[in-house]
Computed example of a mutant assay.
Amino acid sequence: MEALINKFRRLIGTNRTEFRRGLSYKINWNARGICIEGARGTGKSTIMLQYIQTHLPLDQTLYTSLDDLYFRKNNLVEVAERFYGLGGRHLFLDEVHKYDDWQTAVKNIYDFLPDMKLVISGSSILALQQSRVDLSRRLLNYHLPELSLREYISLKHSVELPIYNFDDILSSHGEIALDLQKIIISPLKSLNDYFNYGAYPFFIEGESDYFMRINQLINVIIDYDLPEAKAIEVATLAKLKKLLYVISTSVPFTPNITKLAEQVDTSRIRLLEMLHILEQAQLINNLRSASHGTSLMNKPEKIYLHNTSLIAALAEGKPDTGNVRETFFLSQVQNSGAIITYPKVGDFMVNGKYLMEIGGKNKSGKQIQGHDHAYIVADDLEHGFGNKIPLWLFGFLY
């Protein structure tokens, strides 16, 4: 126990609190049980440590990661009980999925130590998703997405920036752009920087090895996280990586599943399973029409990587501009909580109402003429007019 406490105290002393993710303000930290899920590298550990630093008494708090070798020989429930006996009332468990039968341990801690507030987190989204049914009565679940453009600029330049909702951007984008440009010198430069380096907070440690870190992150997810959560053959792991590369270099397209399966050297049914697995792991987004639903065997209308940094890292300098633009819009709007589906015309339908066409500053509205609530979202544009809105503004939704 003393070893865990000493590691925690050393760690808390090195954590920074100047920048905080938007999610940290939305979490009900007074709840007895909290689960924070999200892709690797998004900052879940940092959120927990920042809250401890700014809100909790250290002598009643313990943060530990369950991939610590300490838990090879020590029982988690017994550790929690000993900590409780020492006056501990706030227990933070990171990488929780690394502990065997962690769901049972978490349930026991929650049920038998009613005065203990418990926060858990993990990098294997699949493992945490599978536990939701068992733990839903006990834990409030929160999802931490990749950085938004707003968060990227705030972290990089140490500035406070407001959050706007989707409807406000549609109705007042001219005024919002003017307000933001009082703080942001060059929104288009920031957007282009974000396309390459913006999705993960570790860009702050240096852009020179950012892509290497992303490739390592992808390898860990595919080689370790996925096999821990699902029975996957070794040969399939290499095909998953090949599939990611194919998607990263493609133009936005309605995929021919049979042809795509040939490119990856697999069957049609197996390819659909692979797309489902990669979506669960939050490496891709499968866009579907509202009428077809999300069944595993329903082919997606379009396939995108989960964020633009993944494209930049995998496409090796050959990303398609249209793909980058659409991926940015999809990730920012979807991460804000909106529901996006594939429409009959245009690129995206948002919340079943707003039809969005994505393109460059000269993009016309020919494809969406005659539709109510139709908008053009344009890159390379600082200020919009009418129903033509700058792409960069949709990076301020969370």
Score class of each variant (00 low, 15 high):
10 R>K: 13
11 L>E: 15
17 T>K: 10
21 R>T: 02
33 G>R: 02
36 I>E: 00
36 I>A: 03
41 G>C: 06
60 Q>A: 12
63 Y>S: 14
65 S>I: 14
71 F>E: 04
76 L>V: 08
79 V>T: 08
84 Y>T: 09
88 G>W: 05
90 H>V: 01
99 Y>D: 04
105 A>V: 15
108 N>T: 14
109 I>P: 12
109 I>W: 12
109 I>L: 14
113 L>V: 12
115 D>G: 03
121 S>P: 02
122 G>L: 06
130 Q>L: 11
137 R>F: 14
146 E>R: 10
154 S>C: 13
156 K>H: 11
157 H>P: 03
158 S>M: 10
163 I>H: 07
164 Y>E: 04
167 D>R: 14
170 L>S: 00
174 G>L: 00
176 I>P: 01
189 K>S: 00
194 Y>L: 14
197 Y>R: 10
205 E>G: 13
210 Y>P: 02
214 I>K: 13
224 Y>A: 03
225 D>C: 02
235 A>F: 10
242 K>E: 00
244 L>Q: 02
246 V>E: 12
265 D>G: 11
275 L>R: 02
278 L>G: 05
280 Q>W: 15
280 Q>F: 15
286 N>E: 06
286 N>W: 02
293 G>L: 07
298 N>S: 13
299 K>P: 09
305 L>A: 11
310 L>S: 14
311 I>Y: 04
314 L>P: 05
326 E>C: 06
339 I>W: 05
341 T>Q: 06
343 P>G: 13
352 G>A: 00
359 G>P: 06
372 D>V: 13
376 I>Y: 10
380 D>S: 06
383 H>D: 03
384 G>I: 01
387 N>S: 08
387 N>W: 05
394 F>Y: 07
